[in-house]
Design a protein around this nucleic acid. Sequence first.
DNA 1: CGTCCGTTTGAGCTTAATCAACGGACGTGG
DNA 2: CCACGTCCGTTGATTAAGCTCAAACGGACG
Lengths: 251, 251
Amino acid sequence: MNYMLPQAHARLSPRCAGCPARERAPCGAMRDEASVGALERLHAPLRHLLAGEAVFDQGDPSDRSYTVVSGWVAISRTTFDGAATILRFALPGDVVPFERHARNASASCVAVGPATVCGLNRSRQEQLERDHPEYDARHRVEQGRILALAYEQLAALAMGSAKARVAHLLWELASRSLRRRPLPSDQIPVPLNQVQIGLATSLTPIHVSRTLRALRAEGLLELKGRWLALHNPAAVERLSVASAETAALWA
Amino acid sequence: MNYMLPQAHARLSPRCAGCPARERAPCGAMRDEASVGALERLHAPLRHLLAGEAVFDQGDPSDRSYTVVSGWVAISRTTFDGAATILRFALPGDVVPFERHARNASASCVAVGPATVCGLNRSRQEQLERDHPEYDARHRVEQGRILALAYEQLAALAMGSAKARVAHLLWELASRSLRRRPLPSDQIPVPLNQVQIGLATSLTPIHVSRTLRALRAEGLLELKGRWLALHNPAAVERLSVASAETAALWA
DNA sequence: CGTCCGTTTGAGCTTAATCAACGGACGTGG
DNA sequence: CCACGTCCGTTGATTAAGCTCAAACGGACG
């Protein structure tokens, strides 16, 4: 009855051969800083993950922030009866902060495909916050963005129709991944299967399939293989974006 | 078709006569500090609101945090087509922070009943963060709690049934308002009407009514007048709480 | 006494979930 | 090389949860 996140299988993807070219430096919030090099030394070594492998699990001690270096990770929550929801996706450069208000993680963090993350433990992060006001300021902004994203997601779920929810998710992921408004010509890598889209939109994969078909039929977008094309970005945005204030989020 | 938040009407509630007894000091995160007095001088004077009156509106410049002193406020978002969603409720002692990542507020903040808030503008807050590490640390934790609440809400919406969603909302509000697990004997003031419960659970008020009837029939809870009684807290918790990790939130 | 909210009830309809089955892509092993 | 299993996406038929529309009721308040 419940659709679950896929688990890591050795066969699913070969072990990451060495360190992939970094799309963005660890500690995303700092990527423009001159002192990145110095800060990086405070990080733990990079951690390579297979598809489905967990960075951490719900209930684990939450004492470490992670920055996604490559690949996507899903932050998901599982209820006692086994039903899972994806709360958000973290893309390269995004931060998955530890939870200051609780000892243990209230959600899991799972690699969607092969991914690389880089941890920063609590005491070191606090040291950074103290000693590097610039880092601190950016990190605070990042926190705000994460909250805004959560509210965006809430509004999308509440808003309603399956079409709007799926369009919203894909629009958001495209914009975040490009760091700009998508164009019709863009071919955007989206390493999600329909089960995962369902978990993130609160739809069954069956209905995700039908919804994608409907969106394709209307010429709005196309998702095949692991590539997304938004043929009519304006219409997708209209369908998905709740209000003018949210448009600023993706820049 | 869309259910809206009620607007402020002078007749709905008389102007707040003077300053109500403070349930909690402004700047909730600071309430245990010795230096509250000094910090309060940094706050703007208290602001009294009528039911339905806005603390700020979606799109307004977001340059000020608010602490709820008395009453409840709803943080809500309205889509271009007029549909509203309540993202969260802020109770006395809770903070409604400004949005660091954006110039303008992505949501409105509206008093549910007569309420008192107290603003703190951005520069003063930054001054506090710099000069009072203790304040700062608590504020960071508060931010984390707000995010956790958002995820909790997301999980609740995704999880499901109308009964679970309504039970979740009432359980959460009861626990937060009591700052402990509710007992069967507790009579908890919940100043919400069924339209507002609907906006917060993504249900029509019609279905809220039917859902409440079902919950009442099963002996789980009773919401009459503006008072809530959880006759069977354990069952309500089971129905509403997603996982063990979330239970820690309300303490 | 009449009006206005907020709530309740009923009937019909729409959306998405459920159940079941099928087909293609891919990798494995014979 | 082909048979096999698995994963993923698709399709059809049926069911159920919740929405819409419409109406009526009750209390609060003027």
